[in-house]
Design a protein around this nucleic acid. Structure first.
Length: 214
DNA sequence: CAGAAGATCATCT
DNA sequence: GATGATCTTCTGT
């Protein structure tokens, strides 16, 4: 591993880190390191953007109750919830709350810290800045797929390791755009302010809610 | 069983 | 800013 991460402890966070209110977890995941070890090598990224999906959020997969797909959101905190969308992309979530209560945090972007060459190989032809800037790009750069659904993020080869605690000044918290507000206001996006690695902002704006083609 | 929508991204104008 | 890609999941009949 490179000098950048040699000095870091790369210690997985504890289960109880995830067994908390979704908003808190989403906030505290900023600055943590996402690590994935595969036979090809190791990639490490610093989490710079997250999105909270708590109960009562109409945008949450769990809003209408438990189904085959969203079941992991109701299960053990600290595990991964991976789903496939738009026929192309996988999205990686960390399950939160307690067993029986649905909650998850979508990992939207990381700043590449280690394994840059491996990420580049998985994302041929894109600028380094775009390697993992966006939930779909992140899973591609980190080779995360459906096989990681329910992976234990506190102990498996795909894990979240503690990083630095970011000062509040660096944290930007915004209501999610595009799908309307929730009554309890639980849907929020957290990002490291002014980080060039976040997908939020003009370039990452959600597509307007319009009718779709037939 | 059919239809629609989707926690996105790359590409084009 | 608009659009196609590509397929899973959910809903209604």
């Amino acid at each position: 591993m490179s000098a950048a991460t040699e000095r870091l402890p790369l210690r997985p966070v504890a289960r109880r880190f995830f067994q908390r209110p979704t908003l808190e977890v989403a906030r505290d995941l900023l600055g943590c390191l996402l690590v994935h070890e595969t036979p090809e090598g190791v990639v490490v990224g610093s989490i710079v953007e997250t999105e909270a999906y708590g109960s009562g959020d109409p945008g949450s997969h769990a809003y209408r109750g438990k189904t085959a797909r969203n079941a992991p959101m109701f299960e053990e905190p600290g595990r991964a919830y991976v789903y496939f969308t738009y026929g192309i992309h996988h999205c990686l979530n960390a399950v939160t709350e307690t067993d029986g209560v649905a909650g998850a945090v979508l990992l939207r972007a990381v700043e590449p810290v280690d394994g840059l060459d491996l990420m580049r190989a998985r994302r041929v032809g894109v600028r380094d800045r775009d390697l993992a800037r966006g939930p779909g790009r992140l899973t591609k750069a980190f080779a995360v797929g459906s096989e990681h659904n329910r992976a234990d993020l506190t102990s498996s080869e795909l894990r979240v390791c503690s990083g630095e605690r970011l000062p509040e000044q660096m944290v930007q918290r915004t209501a999610r755009i595009g799908l309307g507000r929730t009554q309890d206001g639980r849907r929020w996006r957290f990002a490291v302010k002014a980080s060039p690695w976040i997908s939020a902002g003009p370039t990452g704006a959600a597509r307007a809610t319009g009718s779709r083609r037939s």
